[in-house]
Amino acid sequence: MASRIRAEDLECPLSTTVQHVGEWWTLLILHDAFDGYTRFDQFQENLGISTSMLTARLKTLVADGLLERRPYQTNPVRHEYVLTDLGRSLRPVVITLAAWGNSRLDPEQRSMILIDAGSGEEVEPVVVDAKTGRRLDDSHAYVFTAGPAASHAMRTRYTQTTPATPDGAITA
């Protein structure tokens, strides 16, 4: 079977991220982990996933450093799966995906919404630039460009998106 990843994608952060979390069950397991689920039987019951698929997905999440496998019982030995710092850092991504899905629905069709835990008010997640606070969904204001470690192929791909200097001039 041919690899889904092309050689030039090995340096692409989107391609490498999708390798870790782009599988259907992986995102759902992470979603459950964000909701506090830690035990195999909790994941299995909530998701209706087969034992073999859940075992495989949990092993991958542990190997990728997103979950940590810890014993919680000694006789017989039972393990729980706890989010690592790396795993917790994906929460905004999952929230953004859920918000995108909800944005395509009428409010009365939404089965899950994000609220402020203190006020109970519904919130609308957006992705913003940490420096300016500007929304990143403007496809003309923000574009990708080759980074410092980019290969020749990546630099060629992004020749038209050379970043501007602080005064607005384009650098070559």
Rank of each mutant, 00 (worst) to 15 (best):
residue 1 M to D: 06
residue 5 I to W: 06
residue 6 R to C: 05
residue 7 A to P: 11
residue 7 A to S: 14
residue 8 E to R: 07
residue 9 D to Q: 12
residue 11 E to R: 03
residue 12 C to L: 04
residue 14 L to D: 05
residue 16 T to Q: 12
residue 17 T to A: 09
residue 20 H to E: 13
residue 20 H to P: 03
residue 22 G to T: 05
residue 23 E to P: 00
residue 25 W to Q: 05
residue 26 T to R: 09
residue 27 L to V: 02
residue 30 L to A: 01
residue 31 H to I: 00
residue 34 F to A: 10
residue 34 F to I: 01
residue 36 G to C: 04
residue 36 G to E: 00
residue 39 R to I: 11
residue 39 R to S: 06
residue 39 R to Q: 08
residue 41 D to E: 03
residue 42 Q to N: 10
residue 43 F to E: 01
residue 46 N to G: 12
residue 48 G to S: 06
residue 49 I to V: 14
residue 49 I to Q: 04
residue 49 I to S: 01
residue 51 T to P: 02
residue 51 T to E: 07
residue 55 T to S: 06
residue 58 L to S: 00
residue 59 K to S: 10
residue 59 K to H: 13
residue 60 T to N: 05
residue 62 V to P: 00
residue 62 V to L: 00
residue 64 D to H: 15
residue 64 D to W: 08
residue 64 D to E: 13
residue 65 G to T: 12
residue 67 L to G: 00
residue 68 E to I: 11
residue 68 E to W: 14
residue 68 E to T: 15
residue 68 E to F: 14
residue 68 E to Q: 15
residue 71 P to L: 09
residue 72 Y to M: 12
residue 73 Q to H: 13
residue 74 T to F: 08
residue 74 T to K: 11
residue 76 P to A: 05
residue 82 V to W: 00
residue 83 L to R: 01
residue 84 T to I: 05
residue 85 D to Q: 15
residue 93 V to L: 14
residue 94 V to T: 07
residue 97 L to R: 13
residue 98 A to R: 14
residue 101 G to I: 08
residue 102 N to V: 11
residue 103 S to Y: 07
residue 105 L to E: 10
residue 107 P to A: 01
residue 107 P to W: 02
residue 107 P to Y: 09
residue 108 E to Y: 02
residue 114 L to Y: 15
residue 115 I to C: 10
residue 117 A to L: 03
residue 119 S to Y: 03
residue 120 G to I: 10
residue 123 V to F: 04
residue 123 V to C: 03
residue 126 V to N: 08
residue 127 V to C: 10
residue 128 V to W: 07
residue 129 D to A: 05
residue 130 A to F: 07
residue 132 T to V: 08
residue 138 D to H: 14
residue 140 H to E: 06
residue 141 A to W: 15
residue 142 Y to E: 06
residue 143 V to R: 11
residue 143 V to N: 13
residue 144 F to I: 08
residue 146 A to Q: 13
residue 146 A to T: 14
residue 148 P to L: 15
residue 149 A to T: 10
residue 151 S to K: 08
residue 151 S to E: 10
residue 151 S to T: 15
residue 153 A to P: 01
residue 154 M to W: 07
residue 154 M to T: 14
residue 157 R to M: 15
residue 157 R to I: 14
residue 157 R to D: 13
residue 157 R to S: 09
residue 158 Y to T: 05
residue 159 T to N: 10
residue 161 T to S: 15
residue 162 T to E: 07
residue 164 A to I: 12
residue 165 T to I: 03
residue 166 P to S: 06
residue 168 G to S: 09
residue 168 G to M: 04
residue 170 I to G: 08
residue 171 T to C: 13
